[in-house]
């Protein structure tokens, strides 16, 4: 883990910008869906890329599936 401190300055800047972008985007996305915005946003500020991966897995993917289900349900109703 020592190699971290040997990283050049530009890498640190890139990392900081990456984290800030991730945290901001997660906070906004979770807020608009009404899902734990503080959790995703703040965690997204501390590490990369686990929060994004888990957000996709636990929020975006189930939401997508739910929508698909709704659509097929409505389809059935219409066809009846």
């Amino acid at each position: 883990m020592k190699e971290h401190s040997n990283l050049p300055l530009w890498a640190w800047v890139v990392l900081a910008v990456l984290l800030m972008t991730q945290g901001t985007l997660l906070f906004r996305a979770a807020r608009d869906l009404g899902r734990w915005r503080w959790f995703w946003g703040l965690w997204g500020m501390t590490t990369f890329p686990l929060p994004t991966i888990l957000y996709l897995l636990f929020v975006v993917f189930p939401e997508h599936r739910r929508k698909q289900k709704d659509i097929t349900e409505q389809d059935k109703k219409i066809r009846k």
Binding site: L19, M20, W38, M45
Partner: peptide, 18 residues
């Protein structure tokens, strides 16, 4: 508020990694 807390957190985590 989010940004304020975020700046602290970001600083702490970068510090902690090193």
């Amino acid at each position: 508020l989010f940004w304020l807390i975020s700046l602290f957190l970001l600083g702490f985590s970068l510090l902690a990694i090193t």
